[in-house]
Design a binder for these strands. Sequence first.
DNA 1: AATATGTATGCGAATTGTTCGCATTATATA
DNA 2: TATATAATGCGAACAATTCGCATACATATT
Lengths: 137, 137
Amino acid sequence: MQIIRAKKILVNSGLEATPARINVLSTCISATRPLSVADVAAKVGSTAHLATIYRTLEKLASANILTRIDFQEGKFRYEYVSDHHHHAVCESCGKVIEVQDKRLEAIMENVKVGSGFSITRHALELFGLCHSCQKKG
Amino acid sequence: MQIIRAKKILVNSGLEATPARINVLSTCISATRPLSVADVAAKVGSTAHLATIYRTLEKLASANILTRIDFQEGKFRYEYVSDHHHHAVCESCGKVIEVQDKRLEAIMENVKVGSGFSITRHALELFGLCHSCQKKG
DNA sequence: AATATGTATGCGAATTGTTCGCATTATATA
DNA sequence: TATATAATGCGAACAATTCGCATACATATT
């Protein structure tokens, strides 16, 4: 349980430390993979209404406490992040692993974009097959 | 209008060249930016039912005639592509420019992923502000 | 410790994007 | 031109997300 840690993070960010927020955030901190809204809802049970979970996750994301992640499933996921990384998602079983490639980061830091665009963020997700799904077929 | 071209592409790919498909595909070919399903629907009017447009776009995407693109808007877009490229999206006005960075491509071709993962595709989108929106504030 | 103020929450309905089942129609081919 | 197969229209059903509004609560103030 990451209740105390969650509370501290909220207070430090100037956000009201309500039970709903504490539960949502500590759930995300404890998670081993990016969680969908439904995942979070299942974990927090009736301690937070679904609409509140949506609002909370969005608020935590805009406070940069969580990252909103998109595995192109038609819904978003949220992840508590300290370091910046990307993901590789198995398209067969859904397994997720974290990916860090320094060359990649170096380039992403200064991608050349024409027309005077200034890039503030990027989304990169990798899709493929995990080791065991490759063997299966 | 890209009617004839659309028809040829469909036939070459072994897909039935129905009016709905020809209209949907020629709309995508003519587009200057990735289109949402609603965008396509607006262009083709009553020549194809919305459900048909969904089915058609999905079919064209799995035939690699179109690419399904995700700008994290809660919906997908589709683009007719010959060459592989990425996009930079202005988060203020929605302007989209195409991005090609050879270093990026080179690295994406062989990203090192642990655990025996094999990568079959990747999604990379850049977000920021276009030149004119930067000036506006 | 009591209270005032503004913000968060619960609730349920409404939106939006997408999918489905099924009867009908059209396509490609013999 | 008949025929088998696949695509389409239609409307209902789903799933994810957002909204409005009355109530409850967290924090700042006294």
